[in-house]
């Protein structure tokens, strides 16, 4: 972004003759601030190159080799054998499915709840600041500490959750570790607990940029609170919603810490039946427990591609939905547009 803005001005000014182009290049080079801009953006890009770009390329290279950390200097070229191994092995597909299901169980309720909470906090409430700060508490809590508490809560024999469900509501005892869906719900609940408040605050910030007159106008037209939420708030913060969906999708694909710490022995296997092993855990298991860095790198690259595809699908869905709702909710959308035109 920054780079393109420093180079574009001047490109459209005049037709180019060779001499003029050279002169312009010279002028551009000496333009005050031009070089300084590079200096300003340099730290980020140097760090990016060292800690993102290089590992990224090196991972691709390693994924084409048979590599173990203990014999790192004796890498053997194997072409796409690691990828072939990955796509034909049950462990990958199990982790892939788990990542998707845990991703859905954690992200969908999380964002819906965040939206609702943000909407409520957008009203004038007593002690609003207190509620807003408490929202951020889970996010500020250490993941390890929180997960330890959740492990206790979900303990089959002594945990609070089973005491509540079984002891009070007489539901059958649930094994939150060994039952596949129960364990995935438990892991998802940690994610949901941790990120709901964070997303709610982002939504709240976006909601506060919506002009109050829109709500007043809607109220005068007889729209209920719920209708206001549907037809003023949601269209007004749609870009923010898309942003949080994309960020959550990336987070869900990379999910690692919660399921690792939820495992009783702290092993990256996601339970003895691999019932909640995510792709992140599988990659860690391949690379560090099994010492097969080539295979782990292939998983890393596959995860990257999965994230790109997931984000593209999100964007495509969002655009389709925009078209669809754009024709339906004519009044509020044009109201926003009118507002934007005025400012």
């Amino acid at each position: 972004m920054t780079l393109t803005t420093t180079t574009t001005p001047g490109d459209t000014t005049q037709p180019v003759s060779p001499g003029r182009a050279a002169a312009r290049r010279r002028r551009r080079r000496i333009r005050p601030g031009g070089r300084a801009a590079y200096a300003y953006v340099a730290p980020f890009f140097i760090v990016f190159a060292a800690f993102s770009l290089y590992p990224w390329i090196n991972t691709a290279w390693v994924s084409l080799h048979d590599v173990r950390l203990t014999t790192y200097n004796k890498q053997k070229w194997v072409g796409f054998a690691n990828y072939h191994n990955l796509f034909t092995n049950d462990f990958f597909w199990n982790a892939f499915k788990n990542t998707i299901t845990i991703g859905i169980i954690s992200t969908v309720p999380q964002l819906c709840m965040a939206l609702g909470i943000a909407h409520l906090l957008n009203y004038r409430l007593r002690g609003r600041t207190f509620f807003r700060i408490s929202l951020l508490m889970p996010y500020a809590t250490s993941l390890a500490a929180a997960t330890v508490i959740f492990v206790q809560l979900f303990n089959k024999d002594t945990g609070f959750i089973n005491w509540f469900l079984h002891g009070i509501f007489r539901l059958p005892l649930i094994d939150w570790q060994n039952n596949k869906w129960a364990s995935q719900i438990a892991v998802s609940s940690i994610v949901t607990w941790r990120w709901t408040g964070y997303n709610a605050l982002i939504y709240l910030a976006a909601m506060q940029t919506i002009d109050n007159t829109l709500y007043e106008a809607a109220a005068i037209d007889g729209a209920s609170r719920w209708k206001q939420f549907l037809h003023v708030t949601i269209p007004g913060i749609r870009p923010t919603i898309i942003f949080t969906i994309i960020v959550s999708t990336i987070g869900a694909t990379q999910l690692f810490g919660e399921p690792l710490l939820y495992e009783p022995q702290g092993l990256p296997i996601g339970g003895t039946g691999r019932q909640y092993q995510t792709l992140g855990l599988l990659m860690y298991e391949q690379g560090w427990t099994n010492d097969r860095l080539g295979l782990a790198s292939a998983t890393a690259w596959t995860m990257f591609v999965i994230i790109v595809i997931a984000v593209l699908i999100n964007l495509w869905l969002a655009r389709r939905r925009e078209k669809w709702t754009g024709s339906r909710n004519v009044i509020p959308v044009t109201a926003i547009e009118r507002q934007e035109a005025a400012t």
């Binding site: 049950d90 039946g273 391949q286 010492d291 097969r292």
Partner: peptide, 24 residues
Amino acid sequence: TNVETRGTSPEKAFNDALKAIQQV
């Protein structure tokens, strides 16, 4: 542990272990 707590049959458990070992 799966045989003990999840009622997995010893044969299946053994084969699953072999698969995991093959990954290593």
